[in-house]
Computed example of a mutant assay.
Amino acid sequence: MNNRAPANKRYQPTEYEHAANCATHALWIIPSIMGGVLLYFLSNDQWEETSAWLYGAGLSSLFTISTAFHIITWKKSHLRSVEHCFHMCDRIVIYFFIAASYTPWLTLRELGPWAAHMRWVVWVMASGGTTYVFFFHERYKVIELVCYTAMGVFPALVVLSMTDRAGLYELLVGGGCYVLGMVFFKSDGVVPFAHAIWHLFVAMGAGIHYYAIWKYLYTPVNQQTSTAR
């Protein structure tokens, strides 16, 4: 690994770290697309179809844009403006991925009158995060991390209040993967391959959450108990 970057600059990975950063998310592009398609074909109504489409789009976009950004960063040389654009997209897609990950639970599970508003609040939060990136990209890194954490935790309070608790264990374990991975997200220059390790935690968290959505919301037995809307 290289030396840790100053607070106002990005860490510059080694060639091996660049390769690892690309590979650890590129491996999941096709599986994430196939996973979204599978949920779509398992859908029985328009709400399940919409949830599957949004979730699949968020999941596959996360891995695709992340991979594209890291490839451009690795081979950039003179593509500074393109790299900056993809870096912003890489940050923005995280907000929409979080919203998309909650959408099946908030849409296909029965919620109380107040909690049901979270179905659209998560997308407002994602839009707010996008605005923040446009105006303050990489300017206040700690605030950015707090925003991601808040958006990841706040909707969970609604999900935990659902009458049907099936799948909550997987949601907590997957969320734990993201939280543990954030330690490595901020450890470039301290831990070798820190960002690639972060990618692996993201992949694990996403995989566990996908399994929970597939098993508890889209399998025939559990679809009968999904009474949202």
Rank of each mutant, 00 (worst) to 15 (best):
residue 144 E to K: 02
residue 20 A to N: 11
residue 8 N to I: 04
residue 49 E to L: 13
residue 3 N to V: 14
residue 14 T to F: 00
residue 153 V to P: 02
residue 71 I to R: 07
residue 214 W to F: 15
residue 19 A to Q: 11
residue 218 Y to R: 02
residue 59 L to Y: 07
residue 49 E to H: 15
residue 160 L to H: 05
residue 126 A to G: 05
residue 138 E to L: 07
residue 17 E to K: 06
residue 165 R to G: 00
residue 127 S to G: 15
residue 36 G to D: 08
residue 112 G to R: 03
residue 130 T to R: 00
residue 92 I to S: 00
residue 2 N to R: 12
residue 205 G to D: 01
residue 128 G to P: 07
residue 186 K to M: 14
residue 205 G to A: 03
residue 3 N to Q: 14
residue 97 F to A: 14
residue 58 G to W: 05
residue 181 G to P: 10
residue 120 W to M: 12
residue 173 V to K: 00
residue 70 H to I: 09
residue 187 S to T: 07
residue 97 F to R: 10
residue 144 E to T: 14
residue 17 E to L: 09
residue 202 V to M: 05
residue 177 C to E: 01
residue 192 P to E: 12
residue 204 M to R: 00
residue 94 I to C: 01
residue 229 R to V: 11
residue 56 G to H: 06
residue 80 R to Q: 14
residue 128 G to M: 15
residue 196 A to G: 10
residue 97 F to L: 15
residue 55 Y to H: 08
residue 117 H to E: 08
residue 120 W to H: 11
residue 4 R to Q: 14
residue 98 I to T: 07
residue 182 M to Q: 08
residue 222 N to T: 14
residue 132 Y to R: 02
residue 45 D to Y: 09
residue 148 Y to K: 06
residue 67 T to L: 02
residue 10 R to M: 08
residue 104 P to F: 03
residue 153 V to I: 15
residue 32 S to P: 06
residue 223 Q to Y: 08
residue 170 E to Y: 15
residue 178 Y to W: 09
residue 157 L to S: 07
residue 150 A to H: 05
residue 8 N to F: 06
